[in-house]
Structures are given as C-alpha cells and as structure tokens.
C-alpha cells in the first residue's frame, strides 16, 4: 500500500520520465526522419512536464495576484516561465528540421535514414 501511495505521489514525475525515455527511444532507433523529429518533441514536452511537476504545489493557485491583495498559496512561477521559453525553442528547432526533411526528400527521394545512407554509399562509388 505504501508503494502505491508513493507512486501516486510521484505520478507526474514518473510520467515525465516515461515520456522522456519513449522520446529518446524514438529519436535513437527510428530511421524515419519525421518520427525522429516527433521524438524530439515528445522529449521536449516530457522535460517541460517534469519542470511543471517540480513547480506544482498541492492546493496551490495559479500565479495570478489578486489586485485587492488577498494572499493565497501560489505554485512556483519560475518553472512556468522557463517552459514558456522552452516550448518556443523546441518549435523553432522542429520547423528547421522539417524544412531540412523537405529538402532531403527532394534530393534523395526518401526520408528514411537507412535508404539515405545507401544512396550516399552508391554516390561515393
């Protein structure tokens, strides 16, 4: 029972870890370029999720002050800020890699890493 409680208390962290590992697995093992980019995105969201789980406070309120001055227990605002920056960063990288995918398809005729390697080996001969 203790273990279940422990897991429930850590569920967000465990979820973030699982997603991170799945994303990493996708990037490392898949030879399809678009799948690899998706893997990067999943890794990114997993880390952001981890950050948010770190900043979360049970029964806390979103970090919006009441102008009238009522004091509340707020969650930690800093992780949210870091993530807002991080999301945009990952999107930029995604877009750039997608543009490369388009060009790779035009020049190689495939978006599969293994087939690309074959074509390159043939070119070198």
């Amino acid at each position: 029972m203790n273990l279940v409680n422990d897991i429930l208390a850590h569920v967000n962290f465990i979820g973030a870890m699982a997603l991170f590992v799945i994303g990493l697995y996708m990037v490392v093992t898949h030879s399809n370029l678009i799948k690899r980019i998706m893997g990067i995105n999943i890794m990114g969201t997993a880390i952001f999720y981890f950050f948010i789980a770190v900043g979360n406070v049970e029964d806390g309120a979103p970090p919006l002050l009441d102008p009238d001055g009522n004091a509340l227990t707020f969650i930690n605002p800093l992780p949210s800020v870091l993530i807002l920056t991080g999301i945009v960063v990952v999107v930029s990288i995604t877009v750039y890699s997608l543009s490369l995918v388009v060009r790779i398809y035009e020049t190689y005729g495939t978006i599969d890493q293994k087939e690309m390697a074959q074509i390159e080996a043939e070119d070198d001969d």
Binding site: V27, L33, I93, I104, D123
Partner: peptide, 12 residues
Amino acid sequence: KKNYAAAFRYVM
C-alpha cells in the same frame, strides 16, 4: 545534397 543530410544529423 550531402549538406542537408549532414545538417539534419547534426540538428538531431
């Protein structure tokens, strides 16, 4: 051609 492939690998 090669630059695209190299850049993609690098960016990943």
